[in-house]
Write a protein that binds this DNA or RNA. Structure first.
Lengths: 236, 236
DNA sequence: CATGATCAAATCCTATAGGACTGGCCGAAT
DNA sequence: ATTCGGCCAGTCCTATAGGATTTGATCATG
């Protein structure tokens, strides 16, 4: 991306595809989000506007816009005239609050989604669980990245299956935090066997077509995640 | 705000108060939010970056940052290279989805809040209901603005009373939409008597200290709002 | 009349410049 | 030795400039 040729955007456009084009701020946003999700940016670390701009070889303006959007997700926090920082480490209380919120939202999502399930979507859910089973779970982040991705995809699919844009928004406000916790909570992937079994139980409930059973299976899953994390949690 | 003196910020600082200072983007954000809440910006209307900058006598940069934050609230929508627009009018389906989401979140908020209630906070809730009763409810927006404000304040207070940052975030994602519906849904304030009685019922449940009763009263309120709006709704 | 090309204004998008603030370092004075 | 004040690099914040794109109107043509 040359500094003097911002017009180099229409590069590699296969055909007259009017698909929503991207601007630089979108690219910066995704880059920062990936850095946060991947753990490359640790909690508490400063995210300098100018520094990020230099690193990505863009001007500070799109970086500023991307960070403004990220702030609303809770992943980064801003102090006026002092800049942005990655949100601090989760405390035990934060985690308890997050699980409380998930318990309020995710079982409802499961109940609603169950009623609108199509064979295609059910297959997608099954694929997510299958990916969860086959994903490597090594100690380094690169090795369990796919596991986390499949986990998040499973829950997000259910949220989207509700067909309710507001439930999707409510879940999205939590989803990023869930991911962040998995990264920084310190528990790693010590509960894969249990978690996979619970996801499978949710999937089975969906397949049965009983919304109440689906909601119950999801509530059970979230509660058990909470229980395991509280048992494993380090300092807090 | 003179263009050539951005350093005119420390104006009127009574004492060495280190309270979080504001930057221009914050001011622009609040200004735009007020315009949206007040209905001065109608759904579908374009929100020009340069135009807003000229109107508020600032440069486009802070306007761009403010709009980036607003986009995440759902109040405005952005299309790359085409700009921002106020989110379109609520449809009947949108409204049904919003109420479904409120039903999932607000009764939980009420239950959690009931358990952490202090006399001071109960008084604040009572004040909100009292304001609701005394607020004028004329036909023009300026006349029922205070009514809407008291309504929103009541529900927001309950969300904050949970002490759960994620439930607050989830409610906040809905709160703005609730407000938007009241403005653009066309129903106006035709149900004030019923709504006030229901708010009073929620307040009474809180005063009784029974979390389940509070949750039930809140669910009852949301369901009745939904019922009245569906009956009154215009085109949809 | 309908349709498509041409052009100008408005707008979006990015880069750059420069003022203001912060935090750390160093030296001087007490 | 400690404290105070100045210096400086880094950063945030806003304004401005200019290229790229979209939009709407005007106009020519089938």
């Amino acid at each position: 991306m040359q500094p003097a040729s911002p017009g180099s955007r229409p590069e590699a456009r296969p055909a007259g595809r009017p698909v929503s084009r991207q601007v630089l701020a979108d690219h910066v946003y995704e880059e920062l989000l990936a850095s946060l999700m991947d753990g490359r940016l640790e909690p508490g670390a400063a995210v300098s506007i100018d520094g990020t701009a230099r690193e990505l070889d863009v001007s500070p303006t799109p970086v500023r816009e991307a960070l403004a959007r990220l702030e609303h997700t809770g992943m980064v926090r801003r102090v006026a005239l002092k800049g942005y920082r990655v949100a601090p480490m989760f405390t035990r209380e934060d985690f308890a609050e997050l699980m409380e919120a998930r318990l309020a939202i995710e079982p409802v999502n499961a109940r609603l989604a169950c009623g609108r399930l199509t064979p295609g979507r059910l297959a997608e859910l099954g694929q997510a669980v299958a990916d969860l089973k086959t994903a490597p779970r090594g100690p380094s982040f690169a090795e369990y990245r796919d596991y986390l991705e499949a986990d998040e995809r499973f829950h997000r699919l259910i949220a989207e299956l509700t067909g309710n844009q507001f439930m999707v928004a409510a879940y999205a406000a939590l989803g990023g935090q869930v991911q962040r916790f998995r990264l920084f909570g310190g528990v790693g992937i010590t509960d894969a066997e249990n978690a996979i079994a619970e996801h499978q139980a949710v999937l089975d409930a969906f397949a049965s077509g009983d919304p109440e059973k689906a909601a119950h299976a999801m509530a059970d899953h979230v509660q058990k995640v909470r229980g395991r994390a509280i048992a494993d949690a380090p300092a807090g």
